[in-house]
Nucleic acid binder design. Structure first.
Lengths: 107, 107
DNA sequence: CGTGTAAGGAATTCTGACACG
DNA sequence: CGTGTAAGGAATTCTGACACG
């Protein structure tokens, strides 16, 4: 399917403490960004958050945008747009729409 | 210097709990293999062990060898040999030794 | 809105030791 | 020798809340 070699980056293995140490963010911030749905850590059976290296990269981008004054809601919307662009379902819909448009143009 | 893209695999970020979940080994075993110097987790300021993905790969290899009946001391020696082979200092010494041997061969 | 902090509990990790084989 | 376990303490993480701006 995908890049098996890059699986490390996606695996949710770090606790919030490690994430904070690497990113320099406070636990409060990291948890708040989750509350705002900007990151989605996995959860262990007892509720401990687990983050991946990709999550860390995202968190640092998020932190930058916030420093620039971007509201979390804006960041959220941007993320949604990117996800929608990459979604296979959406791509299919877009293609169909494109075909229909092309069809009517030829009439 | 090296492969910057592979830095994830070397970064010590996981607690022993995560390592045990991924490898299926008990904490006791993982700590014992460290005592036998088969793995070298990093330590946080307060003493918590941190492992990398590479450490996990090594732990699984170690576990396999032990299942096969190999004593930890043997595994240890094997690791030492491999390390010595890859050591730049040792390689330099070997090269010099080789040159000297070649020198005397020509006399 | 974004973030700090004190609060109290639950889960994690650590070490040294005793046990078994 | 390799591993399980109970023991007690220290550090981590979690949630909900009050605070400030």
């Amino acid at each position: 399917m995908g890049h098996a070699e890059e699986a490390y980056k996606l695996k949710k293995v770090m606790t919030i403490g490690t994430v904070c140490e690497i990113t320099g963010l406070s636990e409060r911030k990291v948890r708040y960004y989750e509350e705002r749905q900007l990151v989605s850590p996995a959860r262990t059976g007892k509720g401990t958050r687990k983050y991946s290296f990709v999550d860390i990269e995202h968190l640092m981008e998020i932190a930058n945008q916030i420093e620039e004054g971007t509201p979390t809601l804006e960041i959220r919307k941007d993320l949604d747009r990117r996800k929608r662009q990459k979604s296979p379902e959406k791509m299919k819909k877009d293609m169909i729409r494109g075909q229909i448009n092309a069809h009517f143009k030829n009439l």
